[in-house]
Design a protein around this nucleic acid. Structure first.
Length: 869
RNA sequence: GCCGAGAUGGCGGAAUCGGUAGACGCAGCGGAUUCAAAAUCCGCCGCUGGUAACAGUGUGGGGGUUCGAGUCCCCCUCUCGGCACCA
């Protein structure tokens, strides 16, 4: 055995052995329980960052733990390969996105392999390959024919200088990030998934996911946002015609307090009112400036303008003014709202600003009302009854809603309606590097889905985008085609799909990545649902909701039989790091990597030129902020096991992890100590692990610690998913072992047992060094890769010996008035009365009681005694 | 703005069901080893007072429940994630 711990040699040898024996290749095997362990696949941005290391180490620990427990484990890997960064890289470096992407994949695959993950690489897939996206296009055409996919107009960010649609991320302070032009909202036709048709199931299905974090389910439920209310209309006349302005409200009980209506700038009524009103047209134009992001819409100053149009209150017949409000969202409900300033905070502020009437119609007992300042209670529907509301006076919320909905229904002007906050999913992207939407536009036949036998619609891979418009429009060979229906000349759709579509079903394709007869085959149902899914908390809503939706779409196509894709979900916290930037005169920011910045008392400077940079605060590691830490240096210096150990030890998986180089040394030191402990032991010849026999007290205590550690580590990994405390427990065990001296047979047998167990407990986290040590500790075991004694598989997960856990006496904490004042030692079998007597007889109790009887004595078995004076 | 989460020593974190606050590690300090350094090993390490025993105090801030609160309840502050075209 080598005296020194040489991670590079150990890791290279172990990885070569695993690869040669293909031990992580997963095959369907009905004789063992399956465990499908999936980590969110990476976007091939160039090189791995610490977030990847963290994500995939968590997955690997769970996969390897279950292997040791006897499960048939599948852990696949692939590439979320379409996306915006490839186009930006193409513009910057004049390289086709495809070439850039494939080069990144090759590099990152090598990096992943160097980390020693138990991945079945035979199932690798990349979403930008036609044999993958072909089936996405096929499903698109099926859903298009079923009406699940449809086309409608939608609003996008438009850069008038670059003549291109911008992602929200590309809009900085209302301007295009490259051109600096003021961004406009523009309506364009897009294809939509009718996800709202599944809104109810997506909501109720959350109740069947006990293995999901509560906070993720809450976020999804709020995102779907089911609200029961009333959709009703304000009638009005236009050109002698009877027309209706439809609105939705959850507060129909306040309908008698309506003093105006507000419509979105994009609302048809607004457009019409602006026709011969230049001021209004200018206001609408102003509303159409800026990004479409909801965060921007919600934080901007609430502004409005009177359209001079009037509608009629459906119940009172009053004339109600119609305003345009920049805060009214065209995409929610009907793009118009009734305004009740007295009972809605936003309406209240708006009415104050523009001197509109405020009419109180709800009152709680003993409450006063003032139009001067908003009070939280004005908007509370859980108390109070209707006032100033004619026949509805005295009714509470539920009674008033029922009565008013009934009256509106009788007038044929409204009904109760369930409304969702969730909107249909627009998937058209005016970008090149994505999956082509399989539609042909025929002047005679309209939008024609490409027939299955003509799929895939292959994306040309030799294109270099230049940042203006969609380059596919310039490719005549791509655009010009014949109509599949009539055979006439036609144009191919050049929009590509949202990359969330690819990531919504990849988990299923891993079960059968080589199947070319369809999207999925029978193997999908053997592996699905995914037993454990691991990924960043930033995906809590969008990706996870879309994947759940897609699973139901595939189920309804008969492709899978389960209702939900991911049984258990672990949302890892972000890896965050400092950000540094410089700002040019035009406000453009250039971000610098922390590795290129030196920080001292005088501030932060770029190492390359010694000039200062601005500290941007600690944020999620991201490409856009260039604050990713390269794990490669860590692997080169200390080895993969140290990198794995440190990321698992530094913080619990669900918390965010602030990266710092300090601490890595400590993880490496522990592995060196572990190696040294095994080396020192093996030098005197290995022993047989302790089986039976009387032990001296010190060894009994050590064995108790050992078997408590087995219990703790098993529980930490399997139930609590708290790997940092599992590692700490093994560290404590090793510290306890280091204190044991003696070379007699009994000591050596217990030491052997401790070392064998410690190495096995650490195997999921640091597999290379664990296997190397295991072989040294058990020289009789011949590792024959691929046969019964596979590396790793030879190591079983240890079970705790209950007999080693018993103890004769226990220590209880003694509190006086809730303050710790000492300890007492009692027999572990002692009855409550005996414990109480021992406590009262203790020095501390005698001192504080001063002969008086205690008021009360609280005994918590196994923990403490509290004497109340 | 809305939704979700978090705040514990100099630092990362532990305390699992309301019961010893600070496990484990980092940094620091002292010692051993060494010609010397690195590495390694041993010890100390929340704060205040005290030679010490010990006492007081302490989990973002304010209030409450309880024999007992880092943990439960109410209010507040700050930080982070998401907000539908970043992935």
């Amino acid at each position: 055995m080598q005296e020194k711990y040489l991670p590079a040699d150990i890791e290279r040898a172990a990885q070569a052995q695993w690869e040669a024996a293909q031990i992580y290749r997963a095959t369907e095997d009905a004789s063992r329980p399956k465990y499908y362990c999936l980590s969110m696949f990476p976007y091939p941005s160039g090189k791995l960052h610490m977030g990847h290391v963290r994500n995939y180490t968590i997955g690997d620990v769970l996969a390897r733990y279950h292997r040791m427990r006897g499960f048939n484990v599948m852990q696949p890997m692939g590439w979320d390969a379409f996306g915006l960064p490839a186009e930006n890289a193409a513009i910057a470096n004049n390289v086709p996105p495809a070439a850039w992407t494939y080069a990144n994949i090759d590099h990152m695959r090598t990096q992943l392999k160097a980390l020693g993950f138990a991945i079945d690489w035979s199932r690798e897939l990349a979403t930008c390959k036609p044999d993958y996206y072909r089936w996405e296009q096929w499903l698109f055409t099926r859903l298009f024919e079923k009406g699940i996919i449809y086309k409608k107009m939608a609003t996008v960010n438009w850069d008038p200088v670059d003549a291109t649609v911008l992602a929200n991320e590309q809009v900085i302070d209302g301007r295009g990030w490259r051109s600096g032009a003021l961004v406009e909202k523009r309506e364009i036709p897009m294809y939509f998934f009718r996800i709202t048709q599944y809104a109810d199931e997506l909501l109720t299905g959350l109740d069947n996911l006990p293995g999901w974090p509560e906070r993720v389910k809450t976020m999804q439920a709020n995102w779907i946002g089911k609200s029961v209310g009333v959709r009703f209309a304000f009638p009005y006349q236009h050109d002698g015609q009877d027309e209706k302005l439809w609105v939705f409200t959850t507060r129909a009980d306040t309908i008698m307090g309506v003093t105006f209506c507000a419509v979105a700038a994009e609302h048809p009524l607004a457009t019409r009112a602006a026709n011969n009103n230049p001021a209004l047209a200018a206001f609408i134009a102003e509303c159409k400036q800026g990004s479409v992001a909801e965060a921007d819409m919600a934080t901007m100053e609430k502004k409005g303008m009177d359209t001079d149009l009037k509608v009629t209150h459906p119940l009172t017949g009053e004339s109600i003014p119609v305003w345009i409000g920049n805060y009214v969202l065209m995409s929610y409900g009907d793009g118009a709202v009734m305004a009740v300033p007295a009972h809605d905070e936003r309406d209240f502020g708006f009415a104050q600003k523009y001197n509109l009437a405020i009419k109180q119609v709800i009152a709680g007992a003993g409450e006063s009302f003032s139009t001067d300042a908003w009070q939280e209670s004005y908007g509370d529907k859980t108390h109070g009854v209707c006032i100033n509301s004619g026949k509805y006076d005295g009714l509470n919320y539920a009674q008033a809603v029922d009565a008013i909905a009934a009256d509106l229904a009788a007038l044929n002007l409204g009904e109760k309606k369930t409304q969702f906050r969730l909107r249909d999913w627009g998937i058209s992207r005016q970008r090149y590097w994505g999956c082509p939407i399989p539609i042909v536009h025929c002047p005679a036949c309209g939008d024609v889905p490409v027939p299955a036998e003509q799929l895939p619609v292959v994306l040309p891979e030799d294109v270099v985008p230049d940042g203006s418009g969609n380059p596919l429009n310039k490719r005549a060979d791509f655009v010009n085609c014949t109509c599949p229906t009539c055979g006439g000349a036609a144009k191919r759709e050049t929009d590509t799909m949202d990359t969330f579509v690819e990531s919504s079903w990849y988990y299923a394709r891993y079960a059968c990545p080589d199947f070319d007869g369809g999207m999925l085959d029978a193997r999908a149902n053997q592996w699905l649902p995914v037993d454990q899914y691991i990924g960043g908390i930033e995906h809590a809503i969008l990706h996870l909701l879309y994947a759940r939706f897609f699973h139901k779409l595939m189920r309804d196509e008969g492709l899978v039989s389960s209702d939900e894709p991911f049984q258990n979900l672990l949302t890892q916290g972000m890896v965050i790091a400092d950000t540094y930037y410089r700002e040019s005169a035009d406000g453009k920011k250039t971000w610098f990597n922390p590795a290129d910045v030196a920080v001292d008392a005088s501030g932060a400077r770029l190492i390359a030129d010694g000039q200062p940079v601005i500290v941007g605060g600690i944020e999620k590691m991201s490409k856009s902020k260039n604050n990713g830490v390269d794990p490669q240096a860590l692997i080169d210096l200390y080895g993969a096991d140290t990198a794995r150990l440190f990321t698992m030890f530094a913080a619990p998986p669900e918390q965010s992890l602030e990266w710092s180089d300090a601490g890595v040394e400590g993880a490496h030191r522990f592995l060196k100590r572990l190696w040294k402990a095994a080396y020192d032991h093996v030098q005197n010849g290995v022993a047989a692990a302790y089986q039976s026999g009387e032990l001296r007290e010190e060894l009994k205590t050590l064995r108790r610690t050992l078997h408590l550690t087995i219990q703790k580590v098993s529980d930490d990994i399997e139930r609590r998913r708290q790997f940092n405390t599992a590692i700490a427990a093994v560290m404590e065990l090793m510290n306890a072992l280091a204190k044991i001296e003696g070379d007699d047979a009994m000591t050596r047998s217990v030491r052997q047992e401790v070392l064998e167990v410690a190495v096995a407990l650490l195997a999921p986290i640091v597999p290379h060094v664990s296997e190397a040590l295991y072989v040294e500790l058990k020289p009789g075991i011949e590792l024959k890769p691929g046969i019964e004694l596979k590396p790793g598989a030879a190591m079983q997960w240890p079970n705790a010996d209950q007999a080693a856990l018993v103890q004769d006496s226990i220590e209880l904490m003694l509190q006086i008035n809730g303050k710790l004042r000492g300890q007492i030692v009692v027999a572990s079998t002692a009855a409550r009365e005996a414990i109480e007597a021992a406590a009262l007889a203790s020095d501390a109790a005698v001192k504080y009681l001063e002969g008086r009887p205690p008021k009360k004595v609280v005994v918590v078995p196994g923990r403490l005694v509290n004497i109340v004076l």
